[in-house]
């Protein structure tokens, strides 16, 4: 099936990848170790950027989960990210509750919103889902701005409560974001081998075959969307805590498209390294190329095209190569 070519280019590089799983594991462990000791060595601006980078990596991962397990693309994940972020901010501002309580609530909100979006769209084909997700992303700023009493309108809201009182702010933001990212990646690695994960992969490749083994299309669509939205919402909660502010500006259609860019550039990987690459590209490029700000859309657009065309020609090349077996 053609979808798998792009979505899962790992099919192509599967055997070499399996030959070096240990290497990958060691690399991931090394990266975690470096990230864990970094705060002792570096300045607070880098830490701040990296915390955002981790948070965005979770958002990128949520899109990758949707693409990889659902074969669907969304450009409206900024909606679910914003939902998580605003849940944390609103609960602090209006109820005085900290992250310990608002984080689980944010997850629930993301889950519920994912269901709410997926249930009516469970029979839509992929293109319609992309269109509907675009509408979702565009309606978000209106909602945020006009529910000013709760959301602070254009200004947005601040988050100031600590997760652990008495611990340095920059440090706890950084470690919280890092821990959240690592936990999500571990959970997703486990999910790949689970009953549900494998069922979703079968349903994506051959929906009818999946149905013949009791895996219905609506179950697959709803589950994968709810999962993806929950992850996106978690990412929002981390963004809110790590940046200590939320405003409609951070959650536009562009952010939704950028999450997709991150996901495509990381080849829809759900590993820690892939997520870091995706999150890094969409966080650090605009920050460190601030002078070249206007070039960012062109850069991202080219990245989307290049990765897509390469993945496609890769599969074409593979077909030309002499087949093995037989």
């Amino acid at each position: 099936m053609a979808v798998s070519e792009l979505v899962h280019p790992e099919g192509a590089i599967r055997s070499p990848a399996r030959a070096v799983p240990d290497l990958r594991k060691w690399l991931a462990a090394l990266v975690v170790a470096v990230l864990a000791v970094l705060p002792m060595l570096s300045g607070s601006f880098l830490l701040y950027s990296l915390s955002l980078c981790f948070a965005n990596a979770i958002a990128v991962l949520s899109v990758s989960v949707l693409v990889r397990y659902g074969g669907e693309v969304s450009i409206g994940h900024s909606f679910f990210v914003a939902l998580g972020a605003y849940t944390v901010a609103v609960m602090e501002k209006h109820l005085g509750l900290g992250l310990w309580i608002s984080l689980p609530v944010a997850l629930l909100m993301g889950f519920a919103a994912g269901l709410l979006f997926a249930v009516p769209s469970r029979r839509m084909s992929g293109i319609y889902l992309a269109v509907a997700s675009m509408a979702l992303a565009l309606s978000l700023p209106e909602l945020l701005i006009h529910m000013e009493r709760w959301t602070g309108g254009f200004e947005g809201l601040y988050i100031s409560r600590d997760l652990l009182p008495g611990v340095a702010k920059a440090g706890q933001r950084y470690y919280f974001a890092l821990a959240a990212l690592i936990l999500v990646c571990l959970a997703m690695a486990h999910f790949r081998g689970s009953r549900q994960g494998m069922a979703l992969l079968l349903a994506r490749a051959h929906p009818r075959a999946a149905e013949a083994f009791g895996i219905t299309r609506s179950w697959a669509r709803i589950s994968v969307f709810a999962l993806s939205a929950t992850l996106a919402s978690l990412s929002g909660a981390v963004v809110a805590f790590a940046s200590s502010t939320v405003s409609p500006n951070s959650f536009t259609l562009w952010s939704g498209i950028f999450y997709l860019v991150g996901s495509v550039v990381s080849l829809q990987g759900t590993s820690l390294l892939a997520a870091l690459v995706g999150g890094g590209i969409i966080t650090l490029v605009p920050q460190y190329l601030a002078g070249a700000g206007d070039y960012v859309p062109i850069l991202y657009g080219s990245a989307l095209l290049i990765v897509t065309l390469l993945a496609n020609s890769g599969s074409g090349l593979r077909r030309l190569l002499p087949g093995k077996g037989a």
Binding site: M1, A2, V3, E5, L6, V7, V67, G71, E72, V73, I75, S125, G126, I127, A130, I257, L260, V261, V264, P297, I298, Y300, G301, S302, A303, L304, L305, T308, L309, A311, N312
Partner: peptide
């Protein structure tokens, strides 16, 4: 696939 062409046209749109 829908997915591939959607992503590619988004890329063109960004450019």
């Amino acid at each position: 696939s829908d997915l591939t062409s959607t992503i590619a046209t988004l890329g063109i749109g960004l450019i």
